[in-house]
Write a protein that binds this DNA or RNA. Structure first.
Length: 416
RNA sequence: GCGGGCGUAGCUCAGCCCGGAGAGAGCACCAGGUUGUGGCCCUGGGGGUCGUGGGUUCAAAUCCCAUCGCCCGCCCCA
């Protein structure tokens, strides 16, 4: 069994689970389109350096979670740990930003992080996300969040909280970070070991530490709000008030900082109490400096991503659909039954028949179990007369009809 | 990367603490009862290296060690 085991943290999606996945994928497609977002697909792998530059050299993602390998040409390659870097790279590589000043894009697919597996956390996981390039204005932040909310609404997911914060401009953010470092240095020895490390590597993250030892200092720490200029405040205020205005409940969380280095201004997270430790099932924010830092024009952008596996944990059950509409059973005439099935398929019906040479009884049991509503029974005697039997599995009503007239009879049988 | 819990049939689990006679139950699956008719019922049947490896013992599902996997918390994030 151990050699017949999927790689740790990797999961099969079995036929019975696929209806729910397809439902999600369909909603992603239709709601994105409704907002005018276009799909983009980028490779599963990129040069590792891309993520060092975008996500940040001091983040855990780059530090210890990337799947890295050297290809046969000696290049350092990474399995994508997220999508934004690849999307920005594609935009620049193909010069798309010269063709249009605004791009609305969405993506969906697997991503990889070498983490300890847990419920809702896998090494191969799926993300849906959307990015809007070309607007520095808060209207685009609001649109991106509304897109996310529209998807949740369409899926029937209602028990969640949307948390919102701002990190200001890169300059303000840097200034704030320096203030934070200065503040926490004073009490360094009293902080948790993790936070002492964060102080050097990623000080903002001290703010969302769960460690009890850190809490009193976090409460007294300087607030980002005080480091912001007028424009940043107005930007945040606009986002907040217009979300409230359209009835989206928002919780301002001044300690929400998120783990990627490229965020500026608006950051947000969707969290659900149903998920346990991995309670964030979506998140995003503005990243105005990223495109330029890649060597492109100074194009502002905002985006977000959902963790699809976590969304799935929140998704209400779907009623299963039967694999076929018709079961063509044979009573001593298997070849004729196969012929009848092919006839029905040619007419567009989903029809299956027995492949195990089983008894009629077993065939009907199978049909019932599969939830197939109508059986076409091809019996030797009736076939001699050019007829077949139709049987409604719901109530056992059964009748004989000429094979010639099968299609109208089937149509009628399926109405019941 | 750290701490804890759990791995027995396809699934849910009992048995393990207090080692010993055939490795069990329910559900699922297959067949028969109806030699051409599903669901309910009855009868029978198939299916298990007790996660894996090692150790202790006359004897290990049961005790010990290691290892792998899953789950929970930390961490991280979607």
């Amino acid at each position: 069994m151990s050699d017949l085991q999927a790689v740790r943290g990797m999961h099969d999606i079995l036929p019975e689970e696929l209806p729910r996945w397809r439902r999600l994928e369909e909603v992603f497609r239709t709601i994105s389109a409704r907002f005018g977002y276009e799909e983009i697909r980028t490779p599963l792998v990129e040069y590792a350096h891309l993520y060092v530059r975008s996500v940040g050299p001091d983040t855990d993602i780059v530090h210890k979670e990337m799947y890295l390998f050297t290809d046969r040409g000696g290049e350092q390659i990474a399995l994508r740990p997220e999508f934004t870097a690849g999307v920005v790279r594609a935009l620049l590589q193909h010069g798309l930003l010269h063709r249009r000043s605004l791009w609305r894009l969405w993506y969906y697919g697997p991503a990889f992080r070498y983490e300890r597996p847990q419920k809702g956390r896998y090494r191969q996981f799926h993300q849906y996300g959307a990015e809007c390039f070309g607007s520095p204005y808060p209207e685009s932040d609001v649109e991106i969040i509304q897109l996310a909310v529209a998807i949740l609404k369409e899926l029937g997911i209602t028990t969640y909280e949307l948390q919102l914060n701002t990190l200001g401009t890169p300059v303000e953010r840097r200034r704030y970070q320096q203030e934070l470092v200065a503040f926490f240095r004073e009490v360094r020895s009293q902080l948790s070991a993790e936070s002492q490390q964060r102080l050097e590597r990623n000080p903002l993250r001290i703010l969302d530490s769960k460690h009890p030892a850190d809490q009193p200092f976090i409460e007294r720490a300087p607030q980002i709000w005080d480091s912001l200029g007028r424009e940043s405040r107005e930007h945040f205020q606009y986002v907040y008030t217009s979300l409230r205005a359209v009835g989206i409940p928002v919780q301002v969380n001044p300690r929400l900082v998120r783990g990627l280095d490229y965020y500026t201004h608006t950051v947000f997270e969707f969290i659900s109490p149903q998920l346990g430790a991995q309670n964030a099932f979506g998140g995003g924010g503005r990243y105005d400096g990223l495109v330029e830092s890649f060597g492109g024009p100074p194009v502002p952008a905002v985006g977000f991503a959902f963790g699809v596996e976590r969304l799935l944990l929140l998704l209400p059950e779907q009623p299963g659909q039967p694999v076929a509409q018709l079961y063509v059973a044979s009573a001593g005439a298997p070849e004729a039954a196969y012929q009848v099935a092919m006839h029905l398929r040619a007419a567009g019906y989903r029809a299956v028949c027995d492949l195990q040479r089983r008894s009629l009884k077993a065939q009907l049991r199978e049909a019932d179990r599969l939830g197939i509503p109508v059986a076409v029974i091809v019996g030797e005697a009736e076939w001699q007369r050019g007829n077949v039997l139709l049987r409604l599995l719901s109530n056992g009503v059964q009748w004989e009809c000429p094979f010639q007239d099968l299609l109208p009879h089937v149509r009628q049988a399926l109405v019941h």
